[in-house]
Design a protein around this nucleic acid. Structure first.
Lengths: 335, 335
DNA sequence: TTGAAAGCGCTACCAA
DNA sequence: TTGGTAGCGCTTTCAA
């Protein structure tokens, strides 16, 4: 920066002002800009952060980047935060709460302005780190009973119940559920819980649950789970799956077994992934606006930052609100 | 840090050493650690970076986080770099070279130790920024003719040619190609180029190419492209697709049209995505080790950093080597 | 509108 | 093994 200042014949302070875009005479500004371009100067963000006491980072933690659900959410966050000059610091927890804590600690070292986490469950260490840091936090994809700050999500249990009701309305009675195996995937467990509640409520008899393998749930979970379900309960007339991924795997397995979908057995998914719209048959599913969760989270984060800047009295508690995201059953061919 | 030092009854320097893990007497170390825990102290990475002149960041740019290809590569990079204490700074270029340049500039402000880019094509501004920064660079997923530093990838054209040869061996002659529409997706264009070369080489007559819509190629591109292909060349006996995504869409469309795969028409994909293994029929494809590209890139980056530390004479040129990643045709049911 | 000085929190370096 | 000092490259604050 000294070099730039010398070349432009101004002080470092003026260069700093040009970079920040604040009150500099147009002529001076242009001279400085020319010097910057000529030298290929790139300002050091670490020095700026240290000096000003505020970084330009926003931290985001998702369980998996490979899931289109979460990568859509990250895109939404990017869309909301990047125009405000925030740089995303993205971390992949791999559905591991210990790893989440390590990542939170590591990200906190960079003094992020705000942080977005996935889910309502975290280690006590994570909560403590976050609380101590004083950084605005938004939890996504769930509606925690005791949120750290704010939350943007929906009730996975309610969504699953809605799907059961949809299937019942369509005349299905012997409904199975594939998924919810892993303690790590709380959202999957919530969906299972919703299924169990509604099966009881509707008096559909004994629940028919096949718990699949590890998170994240992938397409390949679907086939063996369907086989297991039909082995134990051969008269099952509909299956709902914890995710469109496993629903797809199940449908392909039906095809291999010579079962028609939904003629012999109906199959429903969750998430409205691309495969649900493209598969033949198209897959009935729950649509959730993953991208919207990202943008809404971004907005909540920005609001918290604005509150911080504005009223010094704006307490953490005042920002503690939940944004409920809509979901809906998308009726397609498979159920 | 002063607070921690005071509480532990040592100097700041000793606290710094405990954090860095270097020569401190066990008793002192423990005392300091207790103080750290008690105060919930989290070191400021920006100050450390400024002081030491080196950050703990490794920058990564991929065209899209939603593609499992690239998210696998990011996982591989994480696996290689995180154990070395490097924190990934992940950016999503959205297949936009201008955006890539902006992201590179923005990341360079954080003084990353090294940077991984996707593809061989970049704006001249990007190249200049990178060259000037002096940071080790690895380009992934391609083998550039004039790499910036090092590269880890494969020839997408050669891979496509191998697929054409495979189809010819299987007796197909009237082979179409779906994809390669967007100038933005250089790897898709390379695959198209390989198809065209091999079709000529094998004397298969007029090429049958349907260029699909925008990047990234998704499942929904497959159906309309297949329709267009069969409309223009109804006697086509095999289709190769620029990606498993579109291959899947094409196969589902065949099903809707009552065409059996591969009986009436063979379909091949590219990338060995999960859907290729789970679809019925399973999809013949080109397998590329996306995760391995990530780990190999990470290793190349670490080697460059080690060289930097070691011999001061280690020039940029000395690191300029390409790592060739293997690919292979996975023969499955669809072709 | 511009400049000068102080200092952010840490680590490199040298000394004890 | 430990401590003191200097300074990293910026922004804040105040003065001109």
């Amino acid at each position: 920066m000294s070099d730039v200042a010398a070349l432009a014949g101004v002080s470092k302070m003026t260069v700093s002002r040009v970079l920040a875009g604040s009150g500099v005479a147009p002529a001076t500004r242009e001279r400085v800009q020319r010097a910057i371009d000529e030298l290929g100067y790139v300002a050091d963000a670490a020095a700026g952060a240290l000096s000003s006491g505020r970084s330009a980072f926003a931290a985001v933690l998702v369980p998996s980047l490979a899931s289109s659900n979460f990568s859509d959410t990250v895109r939404g966050l990017t869309a909301a935060l990047e125009p405000q000059g925030l740089q995303l610091l993205i971390g992949d927890t791999d559905y591991d709460l210990e790893r989440e804590e390590r990542l939170v600690r590591s990200m906190l070292r960079h003094q992020p302005r705000c942080i977005a986490l996935t889910g309502a469950q975290h280690t006590s260490g994570t909560r403590e780190l976050l609380l101590r840091s004083g950084v605005p936090v938004v939890e996504m994809w769930d509606l925690p009973t005791s949120p750290i700050d704010a939350a943007v999500g929906f009730s996975n249990a309610k969504a699953a119940r809605e799907m059961v009701r949809y299937l019942v309305e369509r005349g299905y009675r012997r409904i199975g559920f594939l998924g919810g195996a892993s303690e790590l995937d709380r959202r999957g467990l919530e969906r299972l819980k919703g299924y169990l509640q509604e099966v009881k409520m509707q008096g559909l008899g004994e629940p028919r649950v096949v718990r699949l393998g590890e998170s994240p749930i992938t397409m390949s979970h679907g086939a063996p789970a369907l086989d297991a379900l039909l082995h134990q309960w051969p008269d099952t007339d509909a299956v709902m799956c914890v995710s469109d991924m496993s629903a797809f795997g199940a449908i392909m397995q039906c095809r291999r077994r010579g079962l028609s979908v939904p003629g012999d057995i109906a199959v429903a998914g969750f998430g409205n992934f691309e495969v649900a719209a493209c598969c033949a048959p198209t897959i009935t599913t729950i649509s959730v606006d993953a991208y919207g969760i990202g943008t809404r989270t971004g907005e909540a984060l920005l609001a918290a930052l604005a509150a911080q800047d504005g009223a010094a009295g704006a307490t953490r508690a005042s920002a503690r609100k939940s944004v409920k995201i809509d979901f809906s059953v998308i009726a397609r061919e498979s159920a």
